[in-house]
């Protein structure tokens, strides 16, 4: 391979405002400038997004891996790089490198029930996985697909356009929950780990994938283990500060594992054998 640090040029094709409550989350549709340079990623992988003069930061892909002309990324305005990204306009040039990291074990998961538990922006890195499994060519490879999607309030859900469609399908079960009651809210109220017991989960044959705030991941995975799902069948994806994304710069390691190359996707079995430093 060539120099692993050199990004290639791309353009912003579309920008979507994600939530109504919080204007700080936007989804960017990105098209490589050169048609030969595509991001052929698998669900769970990430890329490095460069804004020359400001810096570079890692983000998970958030679109279907079957979209070949573009990909999407959902970004919350949080730091130096994301602030500048949020000020970009359609047509602006950006620089990207990847795909990086490992991916969800989509083949291993075939033939099983799938439970997705996502909180807030934690749905973003799981969206490629959901769209991958719902792809007509793949849907029959998985049994029941259930989703427990949580947000602080009804206005905090990202991908409402997807959620409506997933809810309409008769081959998926979608449950939405918010932290506190709201007038007119038809979904559930409460933290996701408290609602898992109400779901129809075949613990003998289910892969669970969860992502959200660290505290949510901790409680949800704890509850899933308590319910009897083996740790080897519970997956999450981690984030870390990274510079290189290729296992050299020394920032994202948890013990001897590097989140950028050994992750970002880890099973609870792997995580329980690693130091708790994330």
């Amino acid at each position: 391979m060539g120099n692993a640090y050199i990004p290639f040029k791309a353009r912003i094709a579309l920008i979507l405002q994600e939530t109504s409550s919080d204007v700080d989350i936007k989804t960017f549709r990105i098209k490589p400038a050169d048609k030969d340079k595509r991001m052929d990623f698998m669900p769970g992988q990430f890329f490095e997004f460069s804004v020359p003069g400001v810096g570079e930061a890692p983000f998970g892909f958030a679109s279907s891996p079957y979209e070949k002309d573009f990909f999407e990324v959902s970004i919350k305005k949080t730091g130096l790089v994301t602030e500048v990204i949020h000020n970009l306009k359609p047509g602006d040039t950006v620089w990207i490198r990847g795909p990086l990291g490992n991916s969800f074990p989509v083949e291993k998961m075939e033939g099983s029930n799938i439970l997705v538990v996502a909180g807030g922006l934690g749905l973003a890195p799981l969206r490629p996985l959901i769209l991958y499994m719902l792809e007509p060519a793949n849907r029959s490879k998985y049994k029941n697909i259930s989703m427990l999607l949580a947000a602080r309030s009804s206005g905090d859900f990202i991908y409402m356009r997807d959620i409506s469609e997933w809810s309409r399908r008769d081959d998926t079960e979608v449950i939405l929950t918010i932290d506190r009651p709201e007038e007119g809210w038809k979904g559930k109220v409460g933290f996701p780990h408290n609602l898992l017991g109400e779901m129809q989960i075949d613990i003998s044959d289910t892969y669970a994938i969860t992502c959200g705030p660290p505290i949510m991941i901790k409680f949800v995975s704890g509850k899933l283990v308590e319910m009897g799902i083996p740790k080897s069948k519970i997956y999450t994806t981690l984030e870390m500060r990274m510079t290189c994304g290729v296992g050299k710069c020394g920032k994202c390691n948890i013990g001897h594992k590097y989140v950028c190359v050994d992750g970002p996707v880890f099973s609870m079995e792997e995580l329980s054998g690693m130091p708790q430093e994330y």
């Binding site: 790089v81 500060r241 920032k251």
Partner: peptide, 19 residues
């Protein structure tokens, strides 16, 4: 060169710092 001895080395944009 950077150094793992510095607090900002692993500081997330969110404010979370694993070290």
């Amino acid at each position: 060169w950077d150094s793992c001895m510095y607090p900002k080395f692993t500081l997330h944009a969110s404010g979370h710092n694993p070290r």
